[in-house]
Simulated assay, not measured.
Amino acid sequence: MGQKVHPTGFRLGIAEEWRSRWYASKKDFGKLLVEDQKIRQFIKKKYQFAGIPKIEIERTRDQVVLLLHTSRPGILIGRKGQEVDKLKAELEDLTGRRMELKIKEINAPMRNAKLVADDIAQQLLKRGSFRRAMKRSLDQVMEAGVYGVKIQISGRLGGAEMSRTEKATRGSVPLSTLRRRIDYGLTEALTPQGIIGIKVWIDLGDITEEDNTDGTNAKTGQASKKPKKTHKR
């Protein structure tokens, strides 16, 4: 009997931060929670090719602050910031609240599970082989300097009549160790044969290591590398 726990929710408050950070009364909480979901769905649908794996929302009394993590900030910003102003106006019309947008670039996209899953989905939509896509992604993620990666693809793989699940792993991905920062991403590829689900787990190391959530070193801003093992003779 398999009992699965969501890797992000399991580590909230320990190795992961809350995606929505605000306080509301019992009467307003549900309404604001639905509003957060509408904002996320609107941005992801409008900018699905901008590489936005995470949207953080903070609220004050009179405005909403959005922090958009993206691997392609140029698409979001636009020429002379026109795209940002347009998105801000559309979100204000959607919610009726004053918006403030902040954009944070992801320097190491292959260390982000959601972006890796999106990349595999794009390859499957182009009728690429799922085995080749998995192997290529595994190699690229391990080259980015992580401790381990696991990829799971489910659906009518290769146009087969019956759906099945394929898994591939490199390195170690300890899902039950709370001090490990396990990045998790889920994407669905809408192929002509049906929906194919792609799940990715990436082990970014212990929470004691001075890394940001986007996989970059907090001091230098560069992509962190896995320390080399030394062998004693």
Rank of each mutant, 00 (worst) to 15 (best):
M1E: 11
V5P: 03
V5T: 13
H6L: 05
T8D: 14
A15G: 13
E16A: 12
S25E: 10
K26E: 13
K27F: 10
F29A: 11
K31V: 13
K31D: 10
E35L: 09
K38Q: 08
Q41W: 05
I43E: 01
K44V: 06
K44C: 06
K45M: 04
K45H: 09
K45W: 06
K45R: 12
K46V: 00
G51L: 03
P53K: 08
P53I: 03
P53F: 08
I55S: 02
E56Y: 06
E56W: 04
T60R: 02
D62M: 01
L67T: 09
L67D: 03
L68D: 04
S71V: 01
S71G: 05
P73E: 12
I75D: 10
G78H: 05
E83I: 04
D85R: 15
K86R: 12
K86L: 10
K88Q: 07
K88W: 01
A89Y: 08
L91T: 04
E92W: 01
T95W: 00
R98W: 05
K102S: 01
K102F: 06
I103D: 04
P109E: 02
M110W: 13
R111M: 09
V116L: 03
I120P: 05
I120K: 02
Q122N: 15
Q122D: 13
Q122T: 10
L124T: 08
L124F: 04
K126Q: 14
M134H: 05
K135G: 13
A144E: 10
Y147W: 15
I153D: 09
I153L: 12
S154Y: 08
E166P: 04
K167G: 05
A168D: 10
V173D: 02
P174I: 06
S176A: 14
I182A: 02
A189Y: 14
Q193K: 15
I195V: 13
I195G: 05
V200Y: 05
V200I: 03
D203C: 06
L204G: 00
G205D: 09
G205R: 13
D206P: 07
I207N: 07
T208Y: 14
T208Q: 15
E209G: 07
N212P: 01
G215M: 01
K225D: 00
K226A: 10
P227I: 09
R233E: 15
R233S: 14
R233T: 13
